[in-house]
């Protein structure tokens, strides 16, 4: 554990909190991509299958995994029941079949090991790297986003971006660390996908302006 990893995980928790808070207070999930949320649930379920099989890592690890799966499922539940009338499927039209298919192909081509668990882990890593696309696509379609939604996207992007200095730290100082090539490559790709968003967030939202595409 190092400061970057800790801040990254904290940022992930904050993003979940912001999203739930936005929905609860505005009684609406408008501007939030249901498809991205479904992809995240798929990501956590496939990645954390090891909750039931692998040797115990740490209380921290187990607790976070449960929090991510549970909060993701709860978000889907809210969006498909209570706040369903506020979701507009007509602007949430990204074809997630390609993301699911592409991630599966990558996982089958380069699995860390040829086991079901390792293939599903790799699948979840690739899928996570692109799971934000339906959300970004939705923002692009509407040309703007509520400030609270941009805070959510920023915190979620910052989580993986902070994993990058974490990997560098581990590579340099942690003798026991095993760096996972797939996670690093996918993590870099994921951060790259956010770069445009980060730029607009930084130049507009941070200066108190509305998030609006040029």
């Amino acid at each position: 554990m190092n400061i970057f990893r800790m801040l990254g995980d904290l940022s992930h928790l904050i993003s979940i909190f912001i999203l739930l808070h936005k929905m609860q207070t505005s009684k609406s999930c408008s501007g939030v991509s249901f498809k991205s949320q479904v992809l995240y649930l798929v990501v956590y379920v496939f990645r954390y299958l090891d909750l039931f099989t692998n040797p115990f890592m740490s209380y921290y690890n187990t607790l976070m995994k449960i929090v991510f799966i549970a909060s993701s499922a709860y978000t889907i539940y809210l969006m498909s029941t209570v706040f369903k009338p506020t979701h507009d499927p007509a602007i949430d039209t990204f074809k997630i079949e390609y993301l699911l298919g592409g991630s599966l192909v990558m996982a089958l081509l380069f699995p860390p090991k040829w086991t079901f668990m390792e293939i599903s882990w790799a699948f979840s890593i690739w899928l996570e790297s692109v799971a934000i696309l339906p959300q970004l696509f939705m923002v692009q379609r509407t040309g703007e986003a509520e400030t609270i939604t941009t805070h959510y996207i920023f915190a979620l992007g910052a989580y993986r971006a902070l994993y990058i200095p974490n990997w560098i730290w581990r590579y340099m100082f942690d003798k026991k660390a095993k760096l996972e090539t797939i996670a690093v490559v996918a993590g870099l790709a994921q951060t790259l996908l956010y770069s445009d968003f980060f730029y607009i967030y930084w130049t507009k939202v941070m200066k108190g302006k509305k998030f609006q595409l040029p």
Binding site: H12, D50, N54, M57, N61, Y163, K178, A183
Partner: peptide, 10 residues
Amino acid sequence: AEKVEGHDEL
């Protein structure tokens, strides 16, 4: 160093 099975990152 002992070998740890599985993935320690989230």
